[in-house]
Write a protein that binds this DNA or RNA. Sequence first.
DNA 1: CCCACTGTACTATCGTACTAATACAGTAGA
DNA 2: TCTACTGTATTAGTACGATAGTACAGTGGG
Lengths: 132, 132
Amino acid sequence: MRIEADSATPVFLQIVEGIRSAIASGVYRPGEMIPSVRQQAVASLVNPNTVQRAYEQLERDGLVVSRMGMGMVVADDAKEIARREIDQGIQEIFAKGIAMGCAAGLSQAMIDKLYRQARRETRGQSCRKMIP
Amino acid sequence: MRIEADSATPVFLQIVEGIRSAIASGVYRPGEMIPSVRQQAVASLVNPNTVQRAYEQLERDGLVVSRMGMGMVVADDAKEIARREIDQGIQEIFAKGIAMGCAAGLSQAMIDKLYRQARRETRGQSCRKMIP
DNA sequence: CCCACTGTACTATCGTACTAATACAGTAGA
DNA sequence: TCTACTGTATTAGTACGATAGTACAGTGGG
């Protein structure tokens, strides 16, 4: 997982979103373990506490279950939960963009055009980019 | 302009975006004055320094020109600049949503569907909502 | 001129969010 | 049991947004 230290979104949230996406896309399957706090810390070049905070969030969301001394295991229904959260998150982001356009007096057609432009530019990168 | 103190976006940025939208939609026209730092402060129930910070940003963006002792006047080409900045901002927001969907393994069709859903929900509110 | 307005600058302070450092607690296997 | 791993808790440091107060500088009208 790629972490951008100078991003506007906090590191721990990048980790949350990264693992959530990995669960949604089937990289981590229910019953499997996600990397330990310290493993993920060295891999992401951040402090273990930052990873810990991300894992707390993931547990609150019901995506993983912590087993003291063992690790964090992906929950049974994690994939469905992840998909739902991601769908909702994307929809909220789109709503924000649409609201911004409305506030500036843009027509719905103009906003749709901006969406298509964004889609065209993203497609060229084959979805390789990480969540910013 | 409506300011949400408990929003995730800083107050000074809400002011920046609010005035930018007002310029883009023709509420403030080139040559006109925007509210003074102190007027805007009491209207938005915030500290004058916070407004000042927003106005500095607006001037850096070329939307307004400060006239010492007079006030802040909307620049001649402010409308075009505002429109361009807003277009770019919206496009980046959309790109972020699309990238998030790609990272989670969603198909382009599914992402498009989420966009249409967001559009449908926003339309019902007649664009009355403020930029969050 | 004088006063009331305008923008600008500076310091101090508070609260909050994020990250880091360290120490503590539980589990499994050699 | 000992060791090496796991998650958890506590504390501290840092950065940023916002507020407050004060002061300075320029403009225009009475």
